[in-house]
Each structure stands twice: as C-alpha cells, then as structure tokens.
C-alpha cells in the first residue's frame, strides 16, 4: 500500500541508471505545476471573496446609489451606515448581547469540558463509549427539535430573555464539540507525564491546573475558537429564547426590512460588522487551527 522508507535506497539506484527526464526538465515541470496550483487557488479565493466584497461594497454606499445604478466600487464613499449603527443603542446592543452570551457559553463550556475530556482520554469507566456517543448525538440534534421545550423550560425557571439562557442552550452542542476536540489534543500528551507528576506528589487538581492545562494551551485556544464560532453563528435558539433584553444581532438585522422597503446599506454594514469578531478570533489561533479542524487527531 504505502511507500516505505526501504524504497528509498532502491530508488536511489534507479535514479542513476534509468532517469530519462533531465533535472532541468523536471524543474521546469514542477515550476509549471506549482504555477497552475497557485492560479487555481487564486481563482477559488477570488470567487470566495466576491460575495463578501459585494457586502462591503454595499455597506459603503448610500441607499440611493445602491438602488440607482450598478457600481462595482463605491462612487461616493460614505460611512453613514456604520455611524448609524454605532450611534443607535438598539443596534449596538445587539452586538453586545451576542458577545455576552457567546463569552458566557465559552466560559461555562470550557470549565466543564476540560475535566470530562480528561476523563475520556485517560480512563475507561462503565458506559464510557455510550456516554461519548450520546454526547455526539447532541451535536447532531437539529435545534429545531428542541425549540418548543426550550421555550417552556427557560420560561418556567424564569430565565427567558436572559443572556444566560442562550449560553446554556448553546451548551447542548458546544459541550460535546469541546470534549471531542479536547480529547484529541489530550490523547497526544504522553501518559507518563501524569504518572511522573503523581509520583512527585502532585494532587490531581494541582497537577491539572499547573502542569496539564499549560501543556495543551494550543488545544484549548483552538477549542475556544470553535466554541466562539458555533455559538456566534447560531440564530434559531438564540432568537427563540430572547425577546427584547438579550436579543442577538441576527434578530435585530431583520428590522432593516420595513414597509417602505429594505434599508440595504444598514443591512450590509451590520452584516460586515458580524464578520469582524470572527476574523479577530481566527487570527489568534491561526497556527493551530488546522489541527483543531481535525479535532486534534492528526
């Protein structure tokens, strides 16, 4: 199946005897295929950025320019749409609300997921495999299934329309995800480290906080990124569990469509502003993100 290292020596011999392609030709060929790869990648990136560019473009135009004529870039650059959002509390409170429940969710999730992931990566216990599978089914459960009971549940415990309600609801899929990723990162830490620490007289909590957590820093960073991402992009639950005090930005954006038509400029500006936090977060974890996408398993 695979090329093993033994092949190397045999190959070395063949190279001197059978090589029909001159080294210059080969260099030429690799350069050409490299160029083609870059071209294709560039094409994909351009096509990918185009819809986002169009949103940014519209956010910098006035409504009359948007509706008036087709312009590929803003003719009269204006920041009015952004200024409108930042000076209207009903708009910027949406961002603050979304941020608040996302951060709360990240804190709750990471605190309970770290010990649980450690348990899954280090021990076997009765029902561990089934518990793990049950967790994953929660990751797969469509939020639409839980809409009604959530509304009733949070209403009856008096948490309806609070940030903590949305943060708890998002735990449904974020805790399983966090455990899945963290378990992968933790399993790549050799078990000997735990054992040495216990021999050196560390208690479990002290070992976990002082030694283990610093060792999987990058894993925790990537996990936090994913928690942010999935809580930030979810709308269905956040919308159902809030009314006015904790309304997420996604819901406030629907206000742009009024009887007199849609306020395209403001809608576009609000959309652009929802992308920015994600870019900031991804920048911090860019070096570990690829491993995180494979759930720490490569």
């Amino acid at each position: 199946m695979s090329y093993r290292l033994e092949n190397t020596q045999r190959g070395e011999k063949y190279k001197t005897v059978f090589s029909k392609v001159s080294p210059a030709q080969r260099r030429n060929r690799t350069a050409r295929s490299r160029w083609r790869a870059n071209f294709l990648l560039g094409l994909y990136l351009i096509l990918m950025i185009l819809p986002i560019y169009w949103l940014i473009n519209m956010s910098l135009q006035t409504n009359s320019e948007i509706l008036g004529s087709m312009t590929l870039w803003p003719q009269n650059l204006t920041f009015d749409n952004y200024i409108g959002i930042f000076t209207n509390s009903s708009w910027y409170m949406g961002y603050i609300n979304s941020m608040l429940y996302v951060v709360m969710n990240m804190l709750i999730t990471i605190c309970v997921a770290l010990p649980a992931a450690y348990a899954f990566s280090r021990f076997t216990f009765i029902g561990d495999k089934h518990l793990f599978f049950w967790l994953l089914t929660n990751l797969m459960a469509p939020p639409a299934v839980f809409l009604l009971p959530y509304f009733q549940l949070y209403y009856s415990v008096g948490l309806f329309d609070t940030h903590i309600a949305v943060a708890l609801a998002h735990c449904l899929f974020n805790i399983p995800l966090a455990i899945w990723i963290l378990e992968g990162f933790m399993s790549s830490v050799p078990k000997e480290i735990d054992e040495t620490a216990y021999i050196d007289g560390y208690s479990f909590p002290r070992f976990f906080i002082k030694i283990f957590i610093p060792m999987i820093r990058s894993g925790i960073g990537v996990t936090l990124f994913f928690l942010f991402m999935f809580s930030w992009v979810e709308l269905l639950l956040a919308r159902t569990l809030t009314a006015t005090n904790a309304q997420p930005i996604g819901m406030i954006m629907t206000r742009t469509s009024t009887a007199s038509g849609i306020d395209w400029g403001t809608l576009a500006a609000a959309g652009v502003l929802t992308i920015i936090p994600g870019i900031l977060v991804v920048y911090f974890v860019r070096n570990h993100i690829a491993k995180g996408f494979a759930l720490g398993r490569t």
Binding site: L45, I49, L55, E234, I249, A268, V282
Partner: peptide, 23 residues
C-alpha cells in the same frame, strides 16, 4: 490563505443568507 479560507465559516448563518440574497 488559512485565514481567508476560514472566513465563510465565521459568518452568522442568517448573514450568509443575506449575503447571497443581496448577491
């Protein structure tokens, strides 16, 4: 490239809908 490619994943889902509705 990594950051650029991740971009669509970080956009709230309803905003994705809006982007394409406009586009």
């Amino acid at each position: 490239v990594l950051i650029l490619i991740t971009l669509p994943l970080l956009i709230p889902w309803n905003v994705v809908g809006s982007i394409w509705q406009i586009f």
